[in-house]
Amino acid sequence: MATVELLFSALPEHVRTARLVAAAVARRAGVDEAVLDEVRLAVGEACSRAVGLHASHGISTPVRVVLTEDEKKFSIEVADDAPRPAAVAAALSAAAGAASGAPRGEAVPEEGVLGGEDDMGLAVISGLVDDVEVTAGESGGLIRMSWPTTPAPEAA
C-alpha cells in the first residue's frame, strides 16, 4: 500500500508541488538528508517528462506519483498515460539500463542527448539514482526509483 499517492493535472506549474511532497515524505521515511536533493531532482525530472509526454500526446488525464515507505527503502513511481509503440519502449528501457550501468561521472552527452530535453531528463535520473527502472508500453510509461532509508553499517 502506498504511503502517499499524488495525482496532478499534467501542467508544468504542478511539478514543483510534486517535488515538495516527495521530499517531505522521503524525509519522514528516513531518507538521508544529503540524498533529499537527489530525490527532489529525480522526481522533478520524472514528473517534467510525464507532463511533457501528456502535452505532446494531447492527454488530459493526470500524472500519478506513488510514494511508498518500506522497512528499508523509500520508493517513488511516476506514471504517465502516453502510449509508446513496442519498439520505442524497448529502446527506452535499454537506454536507461545502459546509462545506469555506466560508471558515475563519466557519461559525456552526445549531441542527440542535448537535443532532447526528454532524453536529458532520463540521463539525469540515471546518473542520480542507483536503483531505477524505466518501462513503457502501449498504456503508458513508468519510472520507478528507490533509495535506502537506513544507512549501511560502517565497516569497523
Binding site: L41, M120, G121, A123, V124
Partner: peptide, 11 residues
Amino acid sequence: FLDSTGLGVLV
C-alpha cells in the same frame, strides 16, 4: 534548484 529543462535553456 536546477533541472534538465534549465540545462536545456542554458545550452
